[in-house]
Computed example of a mutant assay.
Amino acid sequence: MTVAAPEAIWDWTDGAVGGAAAALVAGAVLLVASWLSLRVRRGSG
Score class of each variant (00 low, 15 high):
Ser44Phe: 12
Val25Lys: 02
Ala22Met: 13
Ala23Lys: 00
Ala26Tyr: 14
Trp10Thr: 04
Ile9Leu: 14
Val32His: 01
Gly27Ser: 12
Leu30Pro: 06
Val40Glu: 03
Ala26Leu: 15
Ser34His: 12
Gly15Phe: 07
Ala33Trp: 14
Leu38Trp: 14
Ile9Gln: 02
Gly19Glu: 13
Trp12Arg: 07
Gly43Arg: 04
Val32Glu: 06
Val29Ala: 14
Val32Gly: 01
Gly19Ser: 05
Gly19Val: 09
Arg41Thr: 10
Ala22Asn: 01
Leu31Val: 11
Ala22Gly: 03
Leu24Thr: 09
Ala5Pro: 00
Ala16Lys: 02
Glu7His: 02
Ala33Val: 15
Asp14Leu: 11
Ala8Met: 08
Trp35Ile: 00
Met1Trp: 10
Ala22Lys: 01
Gly18Ser: 09
Ser37Phe: 04
Gly43Leu: 06
Ala4Ile: 12
Trp35Arg: 04
Val29Gly: 02
Asp14Val: 05
Val3Asp: 14
Val17Cys: 01
Leu38Ile: 11
Gly43Ile: 00
Val29Arg: 03
Ala23Cys: 09
Gly18Val: 13
Thr2Leu: 14
Val17Met: 12
Val29His: 03
Ile9Trp: 03
Leu38Arg: 14
Ala20Pro: 00
Thr2Met: 11
Gly15Asn: 06
Ala4Phe: 15
Gly45Trp: 03
Val32Leu: 13
Trp10Gly: 00
Leu36Lys: 01
Met1Arg: 03
Ala33Asp: 07
Ala20Thr: 03
Asp14Tyr: 15
Ala21His: 02
Glu7Arg: 02
Arg39Pro: 04
Ala33Arg: 13
Gly45Cys: 04
Trp12Gly: 00
Gly15Lys: 02
Arg41Lys: 10
Gly27Arg: 09
Trp12His: 01
Ala23Val: 12
Gly19Asn: 09
Thr2Glu: 14
Trp35Leu: 06
Val40Phe: 05
Leu38Ala: 10
Gly15Pro: 14
Val40Met: 04
Arg41Phe: 12
Val25Ala: 15
Ala8Ile: 09
Ala28Met: 15
Ala4Cys: 02
Ser37Val: 08
Val32Met: 03
Gly18Ile: 10
Ala4His: 10
Arg39Asp: 14
Val3Pro: 00
Thr13Cys: 13
Ser44Glu: 15
Val3Met: 08
Gly15Val: 08
Asp14Trp: 12
Ala4Pro: 00
Ala22Ile: 10
Ala5Arg: 04
Ala16Pro: 02
Trp10Val: 01
Leu31Lys: 06
Arg39Tyr: 09
Ala33His: 09
Leu31His: 06
Arg41Pro: 01
Trp10Pro: 00
Ala21Glu: 04
Arg42Phe: 10
Val29Leu: 15
Ser37Ile: 08
Ala4Lys: 09
Ala33Thr: 15
Ala20Cys: 03
Leu38Thr: 07
Ala20Lys: 03
Ser44Lys: 06
Val32Lys: 00
Ala33Phe: 12
Gly27Met: 13
Thr2Asp: 12
Ala21Lys: 01
Ile9Cys: 06
Gly18Glu: 14
